[in-house]
Structure formats: structure tokens, C-alpha cells
């Protein structure tokens, strides 16, 4: 296969020449994915934490549903958002279909359940450790929730990154609600899909390589930030008391 070699050459030349179309597509991809992740984080963190803290009828059902929603097919989400935002749909008057905003909305629906479900797990474990201490100190549910989110921030970063991975990789939803319009809603994944359909596999693969590099860069930056902050704040990812064995009798 010469496609692999061509793909590297293509990717390299696109990057080296700072291809303006590529820069635009990369910028939009980052904006859509990071925007969706930001919104999903604002929704998912408190929702997941609340689900971890509060006991209410139907909670188990809610947890199961949330975990299942992590695997929502992007195409289905795209279709639902399309039908909602279509001029013939209930939110048609907003005129959002085929805009980056529509893509963000669809990706929020995909990413928020991931952030919320992983947050619930993190916060539930942390709550098991903190619960008695915080109750003893007189923390109400609201204060406890805030403290848990803050103290769990490094683990929660992983949840947010998982959401970003989902957002940056999916093509089904943004294709339907964005329309893959050149210079308006074309992102990395839809551009790749387009080049595949044109039969230009080398260019498609080249774009894919760039997407992978982008994704690795975002994750790497987050990892380094987390490491640096974690070293200065909690001394390490795990609780490792120095010296004595912390094991209980």
C-alpha cells in the first residue's frame, strides 16, 4: 500500500505549509469539541456528583441509565438534534441547524453522560472516604458537593478528557447537524469522511494522522498540567503515607 507513505507526506506538507484550509478546520474542530466539553463539564460534574451523594427513589435506575447513555450512538444523537433544530422541528425558529452551535449541542448530549457517569464513580469513592468526617464537621449537602468536586479535581480531569476523546473522534452527529459545509461546519472528522468518499484515501489518512496528533497533544497538555498541579497539591496520585504502614489492624 502506497497510501500510508502518501498519507505521511500529505500530512507533513499540510502542516509544514500551514495550509489555511487545514488551519480553519483544525480551529473549528477544537472549538466545537472543547466548547462541547466545557458545557458538558458544567452540566456533568454537578449532576454526577449529586447522583453520587443523594439517595432517592429510582437512583439505581438513574445510574444504570447514565452508564448506558455513555454508549449513545452519535448518529442517533445527531438525528434527534437534527429533528429538534430543523425548521420543521420545535426549536426551528432558532435557525441553528448547520451551524457550529448545533454541532456543540449534539456533542454536549454525547459527552455530558460520559462526564457525569465517570464523575459519579469518582465522587462516590471519595464520598465513601469523606462522608463521616464532613458530616462530623457539619457540612451540608451543598458544601459537601463542592468540597468533593474540588478534592476530586485530578481524577475528574480524566473524566473530562474521556469526554473530549469522544467529542473529537465522533463524526456521525456533527455530520448530520453540521452538514459538513465548507468553511462553516467542516471539522476534522467530517473532512476525513469526505475525502474517503472522494476516494482520496491518502489525504483522508493524512488528516487522520493530524487528528491523532491533536488529540495526543490535548491529552498530553492536560496530563502535564495535572501532574504539575498534583505534585504541588497532593503529592501524588495515590495516598502513600511516608514511613509507617497505614494498614488498619
Amino acid at each position: 500500500m502506497t497510501d500510508f507513505g502518501d498519507a505521511f507526506t500529505t500530512a507533513l506538507s499540510l502542516v509544514v505549509t500551514l495550509d489555511p484550509d487545514l488551519a480553519e478546520i483544525v480551529g473549528l474542530s477544537l472549538r466545537v469539541s472543547l466548547g462541547a466539553v466545557a458545557v458538558a463539564t458544567v452540566i456533568g460534574l454537578p449532576a454526577g456528583a449529586a447522583l453520587a451523594l443523594f439517595r432517592f427513589p429510582g437512583r439505581h435506575g438513574a445510574v444504570i441509565l447514565l452508564n448506558a447513555l455513555m454508549g449513545l450512538p452519535p448518529v442517533v444523537v445527531g438525528l434527534i438534534v437534527y429533528l429538534l433544530l430543523s425548521r420543521a422541528g420545535p426549536l426551528g425558529v432558532l435557525g441553528l441547524l448547520f451551524t457550529p452551535t448545533a454541532m456543540v449541542i449534539a456533542q454536549v448530549l454525547l459527552v455530558a453522560p460520559i462526564v457525569a457517569a465517570l464523575t459519579r464513580q469518582v465522587i462516590e469513592d471519595l464520598w465513601a472516604e469523606y462522608e463521616e468526617q464532613l458530616k462530623s464537621l457539619g457540612a451540608g449537602p451543598g458544601r459537601a458537593l463542592g468540597m468533593l468536586l474540588w478534592d476530586g479535581r485530578f481524577s475528574l480531569l480524566t473524566a473530562v478528557l474521556a469526554g473530549f476523546g469522544r467529542a473529537s473522534a465522533e463524526v456521525g452527529a456533527v455530520m448530520i447537524v453540521g452538514g459538513n459545509i465548507d468553511h462553516v461546519t467542516r471539522v476534522m472528522t467530517t473532512a476525513i469522511a469526505l475525502e474517503v468518499s472522494k476516494g482520496d484515501l491518502a489525504l483522508a489518512l493524512g488528516l487522520g494522522l493530524i487528528l491523532i496528533v491533536l488529540s495526543v497533544s490535548v491529552n498530553g497538555a492536560a496530563f502535564l498540567l495535572k501532574e504539575a498541579a498534583e505534585r504541588s497539591q497532593t503529592g501524588g496520585p495515590r495516598q502513600v503515607p511516608r514511613g509507617e504502614d497505614p494498614a488498619l489492624p
Binding site: 473549528l28 477544537l30 472549538r31 466548547g35 466545557a38 457550529p100 456543540v104 462553516v184
Partner: peptide
């Protein structure tokens, strides 16, 4: 991030 997103929207 927010600035980036807002700017992009406005630029359309």
C-alpha cells in the same frame, strides 16, 4: 476557550 468559541461564532 470561551473567547475562542465566541470569537469564532461572531466571525461567521
Amino acid at each position: 476557550l470561551v473567547a475562542f468559541a465566541v470569537h469564532g461564532e461572531a466571525a461567521a
